[in-house]
Amino acid sequence: MLRVDALHAHYGRAHILQGVSFSVAKGDALVLLGRNGAGKSTTFKSLIGLVRPTSGRIAFDGQDIAGHEPHVIARAGLGYVPEERRIFTDLTVMENLEVGRLPARDGQPPWTPERLFGIFPNLAAMRTRPGGRMSGGEQQMLAIARTLMGNPRLILLDEPSEGLAPVIVEQMVHAIRAMRDGGVTVVLAEQNLHFALAVADHATIIEKGRIAWAGRVAELQADAGLRETWLAL
């Protein structure tokens, strides 16, 4: 579904991604783990086209999307939920969802506001509330729902559990499982190991812009030394 090959990216002169490679199969859920500044967010921004990669290949559904415009990549079926959520604070919940709407694809049933409210019940009660007057957890749900409105085949979730209360994190786990049931492939970046283990099958660890380890989530769970080396603070 998605194959990233020797991806390099710079911010100005800083060499952030120094050859990132990984791949995800259709219907799978992969988690990118790594400390702050390891390059997780930059990887996502390079995938969606907000950062122009300096070299490397990104094959999405067989076509090379590296260096394309963000809207072209999004229309190809790659959804992106940024770490900062970037809700349109002046727009209501329904309007935020409308901005994300794209035509249905693959003969799959499209995501509608009503279907999304089934996954995120909190949002159903605040259809006309401006995005700026929502809590962090509600904004996170809205950000994910907004991206799902584009009927993505694969969704990039950048630290969806960051700064959320445990109850909300629990809801988020259910939401991601519901997404997968709906046929969406998931790639998420996380620092919260427990959350990652609850939703993903495969894990890739990024350190200083390079891939440090890749394998099954279960292996990571079993190997405390591995976690100590790459993830402990």
């Binding site: 963000p70 809207h71 002046d90 584009g150």
Partner: peptide
């Protein structure tokens, strides 16, 4: 709606598939 969204964050609007 798209115009108002773009007024706030045109990069995000693009990432959601809108041709700016």
């Amino acid at each position: 709606t798209l115009v108002r969204a773009a007024t706030q964050d045109r990069e995000m609007v693009a990432a959601l598939g809108v041709d700016q």
